[in-house]
Each structure stands twice: as structure tokens, then as C-alpha cells.
Computed example of a mutant assay.
Amino acid sequence: MVLVTGATGTVGREVVRRLPAHVRVRVMARDPAKVTGVSPAVERVAGDYGDPRSLARAVAGVRTAFLVTTRVGGDDDARFVRAAHLAGVQRVVKLSAAAVLDWQADDLITRWQRAGEELLRACGMEWTLLRPRAFMSNSLAWAASVRCERTVRALYGTSASACVDPGDIAEVAVRALTEQGHAGRAYTLTGPQALTAVGQTQQLGRLLGVRLRFEELSRSQARAGLLRRYPAPVVEALLQSAERQRAGAKARVEDTVAAVTGRPARSFRGWAGEHLEAFAPAVEEPGTQVPGSCVQHARSARPRRTDRSEGT
């Protein structure tokens, strides 16, 4: 039995989709009804890291587990590992982050991820660590402004990151969950090249067949936009992360995806080509009004121009 936590998230749902049909799969979610688009054979269980009884039910009979935690600074990793160890789980594959390898990175998020990794190494079970760079899907944060204004706004538009397709992360996770030879391994996962937000904007524009503008956010504008989505301590950690990217800390490309899966990591162009519908600009015909969602977006975003940032 393979247990997938975070099955409604960006990577978790891709892991569920890619697991072989012959593998028994259980997914854990606070609200199992939100786990959609999966095979009827997939077992859904309600589970919460803060509820030991629900965790015990989720890990019962499980051989390998995919662990995703998102409560920065919390003890969800420790709670899950404790329950998994008691239940006899053999291996845990944890979604971490590439920043843990950069010892100049001392922000809240990176410290929390390092602590989670250290806990897993000492847990007595087999473990595998997945350390991705920023997800290509983070660019979906630009979708509304691309659709409505044909504009991308981001902080430090010429700083590069070797961003990775979440599907590639999921493919490596599936190998680690279902194959031998991955225990005790830590995999740094990147795309095939380092890209800037300006470069991503250009590629999106070519794929869409429209001219997209890029507008650089100031640090204060980026902070204001992030504060609409995250707690202040997390926002400061994200801004510190952006500064490290600006200094070149995230541009290194690794061949790990190819080494594990046997095929090259997918490009941003390939990922974007499969998600163009999210970015397709609204067409304003002569004599018609811009769709209401675009009007609302423009009214809320333009005064301070802080509507979007990468959030990485």
C-alpha cells in the first residue's frame, strides 16, 4: 500500500495520477471529497496532522508514504513520522526544497525544511528526500494579469531559477515509492535550464501569439502582494529567497530527473504549452466590454501594482 499525503496539491495529485494501476493507493486529505479525478480503486481517508487517531488510520497497512507538509514552522513532519513508525511503514518519501543545500539560506522556510529532513534521517525508517527548485506552475500566479492586461509582474525579473515541472517531481516520487534503490537518497530536482521571469514572459507570449509586457515589482510592492496570501513571517522568508535568487543561488541545473526517470527534464515551454488555457488573454471585441473578472482584477491591481508576484 502506498499512502499519498497532499493529494489535492500541485505535486501530490500528480503522484496519484502517475502511480501504476497495479499498486494499491490510499490518499489522505482533511476533506477526502476534494480529492477528485482519481481512479475508483484509490482509497480516500480523512486525515489531519493534528489528529493522532486519524493519522493512525491513514498509515495502517502502508508500506511507503509520500509526505507533504505545508505549515511552515509547525511539527506536522514529526507527527506523521511518529505515526508512520508506530504503524510499521517501511519508507517515507518527503517533499523538501533545494534551498536546504545552500548554507547561506537561513530563512524560516529553509530552516523548517532542514529540520524536517533531519527528523526523517533519524526516524529509523527508510527515507528518500526530494529537493526541487521552484515549480514551473508558480507562473500560474500571473494568469489573471496575462489574461486581462497581457502583463506579467514579478520581483527581480532578470534573476534566474532552474525551475522544474511538478510532473517531473511526481515522476521521481513514484519511482522512489515503488522501486528499490532509492532509500537513503536525496534528489535535487531542476528543469533543463535556468530561466528568468522576463524569459518566461517571452516564451508565454510566443506560445500565446500575443505581445506580453513585463513590469518589475519593487520589493515593497512584492511584499504587499505576498501579504495577501501568506503570513508575514513566511513573506519575509520568500523575500529572502528572492534575494538569493537575484545573487545567482538558484541557477544551477542538475540532471537528476534524467538519471532517475531515464528521460530529460521537461522544459518551461513544454509545461506552458500544456497550460495555455489558463493564460489565454480575454478578447475584447469592438463595442463590447472587458469581462467582469478582468474589470475586477484591474480595479484591485492597478492602483498599487502589487497584484502578483512569483511567490517562490
Rank of each mutant, 00 (worst) to 15 (best):
V2R: 06
V2K: 05
T5V: 02
T5K: 01
T5H: 02
T5C: 01
T8I: 02
G9A: 01
G9M: 10
V11Y: 07
V16M: 03
R18P: 08
R18Q: 13
P20L: 10
H22N: 10
V23T: 11
V25S: 02
R30Q: 11
R30W: 08
P32I: 14
T36G: 10
G37R: 05
G37Y: 03
S39T: 01
P40S: 02
R44V: 09
G47M: 04
Y49Q: 00
Y49D: 01
G50W: 04
G50K: 02
A58L: 06
A58S: 02
V59H: 01
A60T: 08
R63D: 14
R63Q: 06
V68H: 05
T69R: 01
T69N: 07
T69F: 07
R71F: 05
G73I: 04
G74D: 15
D76Q: 13
F80L: 11
R82W: 05
A83M: 03
A84L: 00
A84S: 12
A87S: 14
G88Y: 11
R91S: 08
S96Y: 00
A98W: 14
V100Q: 09
V100N: 07
L101I: 02
W103Q: 14
A105K: 11
D106Q: 15
D107N: 13
I109K: 13
T110R: 11
L120Y: 04
R121F: 15
A122D: 10
A122Y: 07
E126V: 00
R131A: 01
R133E: 14
A134S: 13
F135E: 01
S137W: 05
S137T: 08
S137Y: 05
W142T: 04
S145Y: 06
V146P: 04
E149I: 10
E149P: 05
R150V: 09
R153H: 04
A154M: 07
G157V: 15
T158G: 10
S159Y: 14
P166F: 00
P166H: 10
D168V: 06
I169M: 00
A170C: 06
A170H: 01
V174W: 00
R175C: 14
L177W: 01
T178E: 12
A183I: 09
A186Q: 08
Y187A: 06
T190E: 08
Q193Y: 12
L195G: 09
T201G: 04
Q202D: 14
L207V: 06
L212F: 03
F214Y: 12
S218H: 04
S218W: 13
A222R: 12
A222I: 12
R223M: 06
P231H: 06
P233C: 12
P233K: 10
V235P: 04
V235G: 14
S241E: 08
S241P: 02
R246E: 03
A247Y: 04
G248H: 12
A249H: 13
A249V: 03
A251I: 04
V253L: 11
A258D: 12
A258C: 11
V260P: 02
P264D: 15
R266I: 07
F268S: 10
G270C: 09
G273S: 04
L276R: 08
E277F: 13
A280Q: 10
P281A: 06
P291R: 10
P291D: 07
H297A: 05
A298Q: 12
R299Y: 03
S300F: 12
R305S: 10
T306K: 11
D307A: 13
R308V: 11
R308D: 07
S309R: 11
T312I: 07
